[in-house]
Simulated scan of single mutants.
Amino acid sequence: MDPLEGEASSPVEYEPVSVKDVLVEMKDTAELLIDLSYSAVLHRNADLAEEVLRLEERMDVLEMRARMSLLMAARSPDDAEQLAPVLGIVAAADQISDAAGDIAKIVLEDIRIPEAMRTALPEAVETLVRGVVSEESSYAGRTLKHIDLESETGIRVIALRRGDEWLLNPGPKTRIEAGDVALLRGPESEIGDVYRTLTGTEYRPPETETPAIEDLERAVDTILHMKNLSELAVDLAYSSVLFDSEELAEEVRNLEVEVDALESRFEAWVLRAAAEAKDPVSLRGLIHLGTSTEMISDAAVDISEGVLRDIAVHPVVGMAVQESDEIITRIEIEAESALDGTDVTGGVPDADATMSIIAIRRPDEGWLLVGDADTALRAGDVVIAKGTRTAAGQFDELAS
Rank of each mutant, 00 (worst) to 15 (best):
P3V: 05
L4A: 15
S10F: 12
P11F: 13
E15K: 15
K20Q: 11
E25H: 09
E25D: 08
E25K: 08
M26W: 00
T29D: 11
L33P: 11
S39F: 07
N45C: 12
D47H: 11
L55S: 08
L55Q: 08
E56C: 07
V61Q: 11
M64H: 10
R65F: 05
R67P: 00
L70M: 09
M72V: 09
D79W: 05
E81V: 07
L87G: 04
V90R: 03
A91I: 09
D94R: 15
D94W: 14
D98L: 13
A100D: 05
E109K: 08
I113S: 12
P114Y: 01
P122H: 02
E126S: 08
L128P: 02
L128C: 08
E136W: 10
E136V: 11
S138L: 06
A140V: 06
A140C: 14
G141K: 05
R142W: 11
R142I: 13
L144H: 03
L144R: 09
L149W: 03
I158W: 06
L160D: 00
R161M: 07
E165L: 15
L168R: 00
G171L: 07
K173C: 12
I176A: 03
E177K: 09
V181H: 14
A182H: 02
A182R: 00
L184N: 08
V194L: 06
L198Y: 00
L198D: 00
E202L: 07
Y203H: 13
T208G: 06
E209T: 12
E209W: 14
E214L: 13
A219W: 01
V220M: 02
D235Q: 14
D244C: 04
S245A: 04
E246K: 14
E247Q: 10
V252G: 04
R253C: 09
N254I: 05
L255D: 00
E263N: 10
L271N: 14
K278V: 10
G285E: 06
G290H: 02
T291F: 11
T293V: 13
E294Y: 06
I296C: 01
D298C: 01
D298P: 05
D302V: 05
G318V: 01
A320T: 00
Q322L: 15
E323H: 11
D325S: 10
E326K: 07
L339K: 03
L339P: 06
A351H: 09
D352Y: 14
S356Y: 10
S356K: 14
S356M: 13
S356V: 14
I358T: 04
P363E: 05
E365K: 09
W367C: 09
L369Y: 04
D372I: 13
A373T: 07
T375W: 06
A376L: 14
V382S: 07
I384Y: 01
G387I: 02
R389K: 09
G393N: 05
E397N: 13
A399H: 03
